[in-house]
Amino acid sequence: MRKVVTREAIANGSLALLLLAVPFAAIAMDEPFYVTLATRIAILALAAVGLNIALGLGGLVSFGHAAFFGLGGYAAGILATHAFNAEPLLLGIPATTSMPVIWLVALVVCGLVALPIGAVSLRTSGVYFIMITLAFAQMIYYFAISWPAYGGQDGLSIYVRNSFPGVNTALPLPLFLICYGLLLLGLVLFWTLRNSRFGAALQAARQNPTRLAAVGIAPFNIRLTAFTVSAMITGLAGALFADLNRFTSPSMLSWHMSGELIVLIILGGRGRLFGPVAGAMLFVLFEFALGGITERWQLFLGLILLGVVLFARGGLMGFIAGRERHG
């Protein structure tokens, strides 16, 4: 085997520590706003880690992952609203404000929705796959807008942030640590999947589906599993995002959000373990720094994205950690 500590491992460790350090420094400097910013980075990174399984490892350019991000958000919002109003859900099931239960609901709902969407979408490929995932996500978006029970166009406020046993989630730092912890778990899961038999088949399906079929592995099942797991992780991030903002809105479901997640991955490095983290840091930094100067900050982001696509295909991780090698 090669060197144990690679350049990529150093880069990954540095990014992880940097993100962890920001909120502590912010608290020390009495600037709690930066804690929120770091939390936003962690959550968007987690959402992109999910998409990175489908897009990065499997080459499945889903332009509909906002559907899962939003569904996770609505899971948090709806459960919190019912619990706040002390109204049971359907069939008298009591609602809850417990984050772990909400996360579980978000994971299950997103898995159950992703399975049929994936099963239909994965019959196509290329541009058709992009369009069909977009179409499904927009269907869910318009459904949310036209459903007045949960806010419709106005969205849904979470009056009291959901709770986590033994933690005061109303404070910014504990909430950051919860999100950061889940991001690390998501990264461990991505890493484990990538190195497993499943990951080998999934990456082969991206590189050459004919090769995969020629050894006797049907690409469809592998891709469907990847798409579903990918959606579940993005959904979990959506639940956290709703709790961070104490607000769920249809915009979480819109195609802008899907595009944003793809941009994060391309900026950071497609298929790279820390690509989504690097991408989310860069994105939120631009959003904050350029957004303070001009309302047209997305124009500059677009130019940078153009630069990355044209000159640095590996994204930020490709730039700092070099090309990826597979065993």
């Binding site: 497993s196 038999r197 499943f198 088949a201 990456q203 050459n208 592995i217 597979h326 065993g327």
Partner: peptide, 28 residues
């Protein structure tokens, strides 16, 4: 599979022969 090493290309066939590829944990 162009990005995979020669070894990993052959491992893919070995893995296929051993049965399901829906195994998620053990590093290949």
């Amino acid at each position: 599979a162009q990005e995979f090493s020669a070894l990993r290309n052959v491992m893919l066939a070995v893995q296929a022969r051993q049965g399901t590829s829906l195994r998620f944990f053990r590093p290949v």
